[in-house]
Simulated assay, not measured.
Amino acid sequence: MDNQNPDNANSLFSLGGFGGLRPNQIHSPYLNMSLPDTISSEFIVPEGNARNRGRFELAFSQIGASIMVGSGLGGAVGTYKGIKEVSQLEAFLSVKRTQFLNYVTRNGASMANTFGTIALTYSAIGVGLSFIQDQNDDLNTLLSAISTGALYGSISNPKLQTIPPKNVLLQMRIKRGVVGSLFGTFAACSYILFCNKDKYFSN
């Protein structure tokens, strides 16, 4: 049987109960990924557009990504410090290996905890602001970043050898809060402008 003959192929296809339809006229309903407008809100469509999801859904991925980035950066810093310190250590190889692993794990866990705490605070504030007003998401992002920077800078304890007087400590916390809020403002503005180039830089 000649399978290359299109007339034979069409005749065989018509015998299969398709009523004489050609193969290119058959459309499978499983290949149609569009959803009706009336029920599209009930599904999570994988469009890759983060704006379709709320801040509460995005919080999980943001916190997880922040922890992973923090652990990676902390591990890199710990690797550098470990190599530097172990190279000057006169001990057995097993002792050097243990010291090196301690530097890597300690710095990785510490920085992952820091990044995770910042992301959790930012996400919690963002979710709270989204209940107040959700028309302008960029404003929520900016306010969340400023509040997170101010809170983390003012609440975190500075690394000091001795405890200063209360007035000096208060001034240090205020200064650190201002620096944190400025850093949050810069980070939020950079993020907003990067993700909304067409909105703010359109002609």
Rank of each mutant, 00 (worst) to 15 (best):
I44M: 04
E47W: 02
G48L: 07
G48V: 11
A50C: 00
N52S: 02
N52R: 10
G54V: 05
L58F: 07
A59T: 13
S61E: 12
Q62M: 10
Q62E: 05
A65W: 10
A65E: 10
S66Q: 07
S66V: 05
I67M: 03
M68T: 07
G70C: 07
G70T: 06
G72E: 04
L73W: 14
G74Y: 09
G75Q: 10
G78E: 11
G78D: 09
T79C: 05
Y80M: 10
G82D: 07
I83E: 03
V86H: 06
S87C: 06
Q88R: 11
Q88S: 14
L89A: 09
A91Q: 08
V95W: 08
K96T: 11
K96I: 06
R97Y: 11
R97N: 13
T98D: 15
T98C: 05
Q99C: 06
F100Q: 13
L101R: 10
Y103P: 00
Y103D: 03
V104F: 12
T105Q: 04
R106G: 00
N107H: 10
A109H: 04
S110N: 04
M111T: 14
M111Q: 13
M111I: 14
N113S: 12
T114E: 03
F115P: 01
G116D: 10
G116L: 02
I118P: 02
A119C: 04
L120I: 14
L120N: 01
L120G: 04
T121V: 12
T121S: 03
T121N: 09
T121W: 06
Y122S: 02
A124I: 15
I125A: 09
G126D: 07
G126C: 03
V127Q: 02
V127A: 04
G128Q: 05
G128A: 15
L129Y: 09
L129K: 03
F131W: 13
F131E: 08
I132M: 06
Q135A: 06
N136I: 14
N136K: 13
N136E: 03
N136P: 00
N136G: 00
D138V: 10
L139F: 14
L142N: 00
L143S: 01
I146C: 04
S147G: 04
S147F: 11
S147P: 00
T148S: 08
A150W: 10
A150G: 03
A150K: 01
Y152I: 15
G153Q: 06
S154M: 10
S154C: 14
I155A: 12
S156D: 09
S156V: 15
N157E: 15
P158M: 11
Q161M: 03
T162E: 14
T162A: 03
T162Q: 12
T162G: 00
I163R: 11
I163F: 08
P165R: 12
V168I: 15
L169G: 00
L169D: 10
Q171G: 15
Q171K: 11
Q171T: 10
M172G: 06
R173K: 15
R173V: 08
R173W: 05
I174Y: 10
I174R: 07
R176V: 09
R176K: 14
R176G: 09
R176F: 11
